[in-house]
């Protein structure tokens, strides 16, 4: 593993939480989360906080979330 990968490993360790939702678990909550974000009012439930944290850890889910928001803002 080269230096860049080791650096990214350290970055991933920094972002690691004891409890994290998997991508599939986030997917089940994503529609509710997206609507709340679009309305500017995300509730403070543990579930929504975990979705938010997951997006800080998982670039793939973050990419999907941003695309969903883009799509809906275009359609609204």
């Amino acid at each position: 593993m080269n230096s860049y990968s080791l650096q990214r490993t350290l970055e991933s360790i920094l972002r690691t939480r004891e409890h994290e939702l998997t991508c599939e678990e986030v997917a089940r909550l994503l529609d509710r989360y997206v609507d709340q974000r679009l309305a500017g009012a995300v509730d403070d439930s543990p579930e929504m906080r975990l979705v938010e944290e997951h997006h800080q850890i998982c670039p793939e889910c973050r990419e999907e979330y941003e695309a969903i928001v883009r799509a809906l803002r275009n359609c609204d």
């Binding site: 997917a27 529609d31 695309a67 969903i68 809906l72």
Partner: peptide
């Protein structure tokens, strides 16, 4: 009905695409 139908449907479509 916990979200808008269009949000639910778009989420499925975008995730499938990716």
């Amino acid at each position: 009905g916990r979200s808008r139908f269009t949000t639910w449907a778009t989420t499925i479509a975008i995730r499938l695409a990716f």
